[in-house]
Design a protein around this nucleic acid. Sequence first.
DNA 1: TTGCATATATGATTTCAATCATAATGTTGC
DNA 2: GCAACATTATGATTGAAATCATATATGCAA
Lengths: 151, 151
Amino acid sequence: MQSGRVALIRHTESGHKVTLHVAGTGDAAAEASLFSSAYHCDCIAMEDSTVIFLKKTVVMDLIASDSEFSTSLMKRFAEQIIGYRRRLELMTIPRAEDRVLAALADGWLTGSVMQFASAIGLSHEATYRALSRLVAKGRIKRPVRGRYEPA
Amino acid sequence: MQSGRVALIRHTESGHKVTLHVAGTGDAAAEASLFSSAYHCDCIAMEDSTVIFLKKTVVMDLIASDSEFSTSLMKRFAEQIIGYRRRLELMTIPRAEDRVLAALADGWLTGSVMQFASAIGLSHEATYRALSRLVAKGRIKRPVRGRYEPA
DNA sequence: TTGCATATATGATTTCAATCATAATGTTGC
DNA sequence: GCAACATTATGATTGAAATCATATATGCAA
């Protein structure tokens, strides 16, 4: 990606949406599907974005021939894996307030609260309420409507 | 890994345990930490296991020099990423019954129900109850105590 | 500027998972 | 065999998140 931000979204059977991955400038999206023949999710631009498309064969050749490229791609994969593990850890936090606070500290609230709620597996209402309670407790600040920051 | 099964477990601040990864024969554990200086989780043998330890430098050299090794390792990473995404999708299913059924279909119940419950982010009681209800509804079968199978 | 859609926000209600208990059933080591 | 422990299983209670509802604010387009 040259600029902007895109999200990989999957629509579950139960009708919910799951944000699988968010890629910003310099990141790649859908690298993980390099080794899969098919992969079902939508790529949604969250901002105006410029994206470069690469043919799978080109990338696979690069992996085989260019060890530096290969190593750096592997590093990204490893970072993604560690990120997913952290996110799984987040998802096991039972209380909405605790989960929201932990997710905030991890920098998950970049876009809208709706997206944030979806990313951490809570209903948006529960998320708004948790944010309100955290503001009331002085744990976080809300400089303006819709913006939340560490206290 | 030469044989057996080990699990990577993280203990969260809230005192819960999260199963981050389960590695069986032929799999690797903790590959994702190749690019991290430190990584905090426990590796627990779920069965008698034989594990080969490799020095990080050796593996990194192999990645740089052996493109076949590099590609196959990358494939594993990609598969893990896809696995984590699916697991995240599972975790967003709100009703215990639905989540348990989906997780069963994905083949998550290999060990004990306790481990299964931990893997899908439910209390073991909720998991047992969901399993019971699914059996009562005829969606799954329980040939013997502690074993559950697709109907 | 006026609709229309969406995001933000909170109230009321219901549902259901977490939690606390208890018991039966396996499993392991002595 | 038996004692200690873990797993399986279910009941009762509680708390909290999902859901439904409503209102306001905001952005966007006609």
